[in-house]
Amino acid sequence: MSDPASPVPGRRAAVLGSPIAHSLSPALHRAAYRALGLTGWTYDRFEVGETDLKAFLDGLGQEWAGLSLTMPLKRAVLPLLDGVSDTAASVEAVNTVVFTADGRRVGDNTDIPGMVAALRERGITRVPRAAVLGAGATASSAVAALARVCEGPVTAYVRGPARAAEMRGWGERLGVPVETADWADAAEALTAPLVVATTPAGTTDALAAAVPEAPGTLFDVLYEPWPTPLAAAWADRGGRVVGGLDLLVHQAVLQVEQMTGAAEAPLAAMRDAGERALAAR
């Protein structure tokens, strides 16, 4: 990969994280640029860890329009920014950095509205209660999204008292009644009208055998491997499944609009590019 600060005609953007080779973001953003006619725009991926992030940002030139961030950078970037949106501040997690005309670095979180949009696309606008599997940055974003969707309590299934306290804290901060339960009882989560799985690959595989008859909606944030055993079992029993690609596309749509100034990013073209990229693996 070329030096991130090297001069390139047009505007540049990229996704940063570690590991990053698996990211579908380049396929989505490049498809958007083609559909929007932005022939001078490029979008790359860079392997960047927490200790490398400041140097990377400091080395960027004026041709840079924005960055997408994945783990482990969503919280590490906060002290390196000049401003943060209310949405990102609410969960202390940034997945989008936009460089303004006056050189400022402004952070946002498009995961939260992306989750809401992905659910809305599948007809989920309100649920009486919900369950979250896991903790961490994605789980806190899920709680923030559920604040806009869930009418009643959210139960978070986590490992250990520290993570339980953290999730209850996010609930208090976000105005969502969050109850916590031990991961050993995670099968109980599957009876909720909406279940959001935020855990790494393989973590929920054992729960596939516990999917009830006539389940509600599962939002599994993974997109590779897909379907997960839990998502496959859920669909087999007639439940509605929202996947990680749905989230990735909807949050990327918002990123493209912020970075390019486009009034409406091409959702269909971006989804098609993501599906083709996954199928080619």
Rank of each mutant, 00 (worst) to 15 (best):
A209E: 14
T217E: 12
A262P: 13
L36F: 09
I112A: 01
V149I: 12
F56Q: 03
P229T: 09
A31K: 02
L57H: 12
R129I: 02
P153Y: 02
E179Y: 03
A5C: 06
T180W: 05
A101D: 15
L222A: 12
A279W: 14
R11N: 06
A21W: 00
R30P: 02
V127D: 09
T96G: 00
G123P: 14
G66S: 07
R237E: 13
M259Y: 14
S6D: 15
R240M: 15
L267I: 06
A165Y: 00
T96D: 04
E63L: 05
L67E: 04
V132G: 04
L247A: 03
A27V: 03
D185Y: 10
D205H: 06
V127W: 08
L146H: 09
P79W: 12
L254Y: 00
R126I: 07
P161Y: 14
G244R: 11
R12S: 11
D111Q: 06
E166P: 00
L73M: 00
P128R: 14
V149Q: 01
S140T: 13
V249Q: 01
T42M: 14
R163K: 13
R163D: 03
A101L: 12
Y157P: 04
R276M: 07
P212S: 04
V94T: 04
V84I: 15
D3G: 04
A280T: 07
V84L: 02
A263N: 15
G136E: 06
A118I: 10
E172N: 02
R281W: 05
L174M: 09
A252F: 07
L194T: 08
K74S: 08
R173M: 05
L133T: 10
Y223L: 13
R240N: 13
A117V: 10
A187R: 13
W41L: 11
Y33H: 11
V195K: 03
A93W: 05
E92T: 14
G49R: 13
G114A: 05
T70R: 01
L230E: 06
P19F: 05
E264K: 15
N109I: 01
V94I: 08
V196N: 02
P153T: 08
A164S: 12
A147M: 09
A142H: 08
V241P: 02
V8E: 12
L119P: 03
R126G: 10
A21N: 00
T260S: 13
V77L: 08
